[in-house]
């Protein structure tokens, strides 16, 4: 499998603050590569450097085995992107926006091509409507059409589900998986939500304060054997007493208020059955971890938890 993106020792500083610090990673052909980090971690700056919007302080970026700085036009011709919000010319129609950006991508534009593309994102009926009348979800779909109209090999999506409703988020995830699995595209997708990366990506990088703290296959990085599980019952005091006298006591974590376990995710059904058997009313029983906890687990292996965020 060939390497599509190779980043080596990338640095970028803004006013003395290191936004990206010695960052290296590779993205292989056909990957959905998750770019994970909290807000301000340096994801967007890195993505902007991949798209030549921001100039690296130092380091090397190779895309399609070519130096980005020296082969900018050639590389961007094969790249599609959405950076944060999908902003377009609000005073133009969906069709005109798509036409403008398709022509800027250097392809020959036909009405059929544009209408087909709008059809794919379910905007064909609104092709003549001005973008200023569109909802955020519609703009995002048009943004996808713009990113894909020139059939790029590499697609870079910076926080593509921002501002979308649940259906929009689900559609976007489906689309990203489809781009990789059925169309063989390479996708780099950034998010501050672990759950999103877990669902979409096969490989991922985790960055914090501009530095890489982990990189690898998602399946290997997200260990299901050490999941934090949160329990809320109708009588937590009684439940905790019973748990302390049972085989589950080994998994109970000290916690104020709610009851927490550190356990294998696969054991949750057994725990639920035991609680019911012991006549404990369950209000909620769910794996519950924040990105912050996941970062802590990466920097301190003893705290390792499985990442699932809201």
């Amino acid at each position: 499998m060939s390497v599509i993106v190779s980043v080596q020792q990338l640095f970028k500083e803004f006013d003395g603050v290191k936004a990206v610090n010695d960052l290296s990673f590779t993205v292989n052909e056909g990957d959905v590569y998750g770019f994970l980090g909290q807000n301000g971690a340096g994801k967007s700056t890195t993505i902007r450097m991949l798209l030549t919007l921001v100039k690296p302080g130092s380091g090397s970026i190779k895309i399609f085995d070519k130096e980005l700085a020296a082969n900018r036009s050639e590389i961007l011709r094969q790249t599609g992107a959405i950076i944060e919000r999908p902003d377009m010319y609000k005073y133009l129609s969906a069709y005109d926006n798509l036409s403008v950006f398709a022509r800027l991508s250097g392809i020959k534009v036909s009405r059929k091509l544009l209408m087909d593309q709008l059809e794919k994102v379910d905007l064909a009926q609104r092709y003549n409507s001005k973008v200023k009348t569109f909802s955020q979800g519609m703009k995002q779909r048009l943004g996808i059409a713009i990113a894909l109209v020139h059939d790029p090999k590499l697609i870079i999506l910076d926080e593509p589900t921002n501002g979308l409703d649940p259906q929009g988020i689900a559609d976007m995830r489906k689309l990203i998986i489809n781009l990789s699995k059925e169309q063989g595209k390479t996708v780099i997708v950034s998010s501050h939500l672990l759950s999103e990366i877990e669902v979409m990506a096969n490989r991922m990088i985790v960055i914090d304060k501009g530095k890489k703290i982990a990189e690898g296959a998602v399946s290997e990085m997200l260990d299901p054997s050490s999941t934090i599980v949160q329990l809320e019952t109708t009588n937590n005091e009684k439940a905790l007493n019973l748990l302390h006298q049972s085989q589950w006591n080994a998994f109970v974590e000290p916690s104020a208020g709610l009851i927490k376990f550190r356990m294998n995710k696969n054991e949750i059904p057994s725990l639920a059955a035991w609680l019911i058997q012991n006549d404990i009313g369950i209000i909620a029983l769910q794996p519950k971890h924040s990105l912050e906890e996941y970062f802590l687990s990466l920097t301190n292996p003893e705290n390792h938890v499985e990442p699932v965020s809201n």
Partner: peptide, 14 residues
């Protein structure tokens, strides 16, 4: 201001 500059600059134009 419209946000289109970043999209414009991701196209193969200098």
């Amino acid at each position: 201001n419209m946000g289109t500059l970043r999209l414009l600059l991701t196209k193969p134009i200098s």
